[in-house]
């Protein structure tokens, strides 16, 4: 099986069986954004406890890239500090810009989205969930990290 096919399988797995796709009652932060170009919509909910993203969930609708990216994000970011999460977001953006070679350990399934770089028009779909998360966390006032990469 080619690597591309494995990536495709991972993306489809998250799309068909999204992780942490649920409301989060009592979430300290939440944020909704959409991409009017294709109608992708993501809402992120997080419990932030003492500078740590204790729990992260999402709701949304849209294409396989946007929804799988959100699902993978909730797995990769949960348990990290806000700063670490923002750093990861920066690295993810870097990967989608073709500038950062992903670190398998930190990225986990997120690596599968690397192939999307081939389709520049769809990079926005992959990054949407991270935009929403970043905006949500910055609202907490606990963030110190800047946005090192912007894409799209």
């Amino acid at each position: 099986m080619a690597l591309d096919d494995i990536y495709k399988e991972v993306i489809l797995d998250h799309y068909k069986n999204p992780r942490n796709k649920r409301d989060l009652p009592g979430a300290e932060v939440s944020c909704t954004r959409n991409n009017p170009l294709c109608g992708d919509e993501i809402t992120v909910f997080a419990h932030v406890d003492d500078g740590t993203v204790a729990e992260l969930t999402f709701q949304g609708a849209g294409c396989s890239i946007s929804q799988s990216s959100a699902s993978m994000m909730t797995e990769a970011a949960a348990g990290r500090t806000v700063d670490q999460t923002l750093e990861l977001a920066g690295q993810f953006r870097g990967m989608m810009a073709g500038e950062v070679e992903p670190d398998d350990d930190r990225f986990g399934d997120l690596v599968a989205l690397k192939g999307v770089v081939k389709y520049p028009i769809r990079i926005k779909c992959a990054v949407l969930a991270w935009d929403v998360l970043q905006e949500a966390l910055q609202d907490t006032g606990e963030a110190t990290g800047a946005r090192p990469h912007t894409v799209g």
């Binding site: 294709c38 849209g62 294409c63 396989s64 890239i65 389709y119 028009i121 779909c125």
Partner: peptide, 8 residues
């Protein structure tokens, strides 16, 4: 199937 997925 989302149009962008289908077109891809």
């Amino acid at each position: 199937i989302h149009p962008h997925d289908l077109a891809t």
